[in-house]
Design a protein around this nucleic acid. Sequence first.
DNA 1: CCAATACCATACTAATATGATCGGAATAAT
DNA 2: ATTATTCCGATCATATTAGTATGGTATTGG
Lengths: 148, 148
Amino acid sequence: MNVSRKCQYALRAIYELSSRLGAGPTSVAEIASVQAIPPRFLELILRQLRQGGFVESRRGVSGGYLLSVPPRSLNVGAIIRFIDGPIGPVQCTNRNDEAFCSLEGERAFMGMWSRVRDAVAAVYDETTFQDLIDEKNATGQYVGSYCI
Amino acid sequence: MNVSRKCQYALRAIYELSSRLGAGPTSVAEIASVQAIPPRFLELILRQLRQGGFVESRRGVSGGYLLSVPPRSLNVGAIIRFIDGPIGPVQCTNRNDEAFCSLEGERAFMGMWSRVRDAVAAVYDETTFQDLIDEKNATGQYVGSYCI
DNA sequence: CCAATACCATACTAATATGATCGGAATAAT
DNA sequence: ATTATTCCGATCATATTAGTATGGTATTGG
């Protein structure tokens, strides 16, 4: 359930675009520079995010990328799932590896894995990019409370 | 923050030993068979767990492994940390990769990463192996509530 | 037009982590 | 002594990750 570096790059890129809302397209080079992301790699990531409908692109001189959704209605969980796949501590809690799940010894752990998955998903799904911007401006003192 | 397969093996092994409490040593072959774990790999894992003080070993005929701590006072978090290292969605929240953390763009995310880490750790640290045995006997209907 | 700038697509590679195995030595119960 | 078992160090194999390379195609300002 680790968030891959690629995904962290994606999140930072989206965050950067969120903070530049309404300022026209931002180039890959600009985002890469500000967020310290390998430019070619970022190009790859942004293309993928575009195919997922999270960003739009403008070609040509003074082109770049724009957020295609307001930061308030875009949450972190959507990006993480899109880049890294299902959220959860083990494959077992992600509906596909049934063979693995059916293992006798695994049954005792299923409840715990589910609780972890739900707790993590709750945090990611309830954190929008607007929240991230707000939180940063509040110098990171805010600590939310999440119950499952 | 994914729990590696190796770690899942370790947890299942400890769980198996927990359920056989007071029944003398259990051999690697026996545990491997019941829990469907590659035997040689399990051997490696149990040795490691022994060095961590979680289990004891008896050599020779009718030897094997025993839990060295009562299941009630051994929690899942301890095993996961021992096998997989610090719990957390990114390296950044584990006090060592300061260079990575100090990155300007990462600041906005720190609060979220911390909340995820704490939520996950809470579940793991509050689940003992006795809980797992109880939960299984209760046919897995139990769903706990965890707040941070 | 045309040259600069940006996006697009695929393939490739290097490094790292993970998962698992091997051969044999030490130990202890019978 | 024999046999079942743990113990030890090394090694292999594979998958994933992270990032690069190459070679385009589209758009726009001048």
